[in-house]
Design a protein around this nucleic acid. Structure first.
Lengths: 115, 115
DNA sequence: GCTCATAGTGTCTAAAAGGATACCGTCCCG
DNA sequence: CGGGACGGTATCCTTTTAGACACTATGAGC
């Protein structure tokens, strides 16, 4: 699971903001959640869509998202192996935010172009 | 400025999502943006509200947010010194997202309580 | 028999982020 | 004269994150 970045929960109201951010932080988590909105996706399919994630990183991020209850993992006992990832209800409740982030990112692309 | 976590911008559509996240990532940035919504705030006032930020971290985060054009910094040549931080237009355009994150965080507090 | 695809794991290392602590000059208040 | 508020800096150290790269088993297709 993603590490809690703040140990106390009874801090100022802004704390919930940071707590939420800590879940989608991690270099690939937001991207994974974004792509999972298209529906159930397999491991290597995600890998291809995300660009250049190493399998180790992808595994890490998926495991954390799963531990946080944002995604679900279903294993089919076949050969070759088949594992499907999908959004959980909680993960789906995050969709509007992911969409808003994408919209904001697109609208502010000039910011990133400078780098 | 916050480091660009992805070097290429022409990646899959999810890239904008990650780019946006990278701006509010950093342990205190989201909290700072949240508190700045109440209006112009001074350095030590932010420090008190955020809980237990060290001045070094607060300076870092504020400088990055400023470099990213999300906040503005105004120095008054007085003694004792007076420095005020406020949201820029771009920063204000992020407000709905911050608010959504806070709402989501509050609604999913059970997740964080487990830690 | 060779190679490919699947879904990962293990190890090692580099880089970045975050934290602790001490310190600065100036002025005001008592 | 001592102490506090202000808005930071400087230095050092630890933790966390991310990346490269190699490797696994199985079966299918050529």
């Amino acid at each position: 699971m993603a590490k809690a970045r703040h140990s106390r929960l009874d801090c100022t109201p802004g704390c919930a903001v940071e707590a939420a951010v800590s879940l989608i932080d991690g270099k690939w988590k937001a991207v994974i959640l974004y792509h999972l909105q298209d529906g159930t996706t397999r491991f290597n399919e995600l890998r291809r869509r995300a660009g250049d994630v190493t399998p180790r990183m992808l595994t890490n991020q998926l495991r954390e998202l799963e531990a946080d209850g944002l995604i679900e993992r279903e294993v089919f006992a076949q050969v070759p192996p088949r594992v499907e990832y999908s959004l959980s209800d909680r993960g789906r409740s995050l969709s509007p935010i992911i969409a808003a982030l994408k919209a904001w990112g697109d609208a502010n692309m000039d910011l990133f172009a400078r780098r």
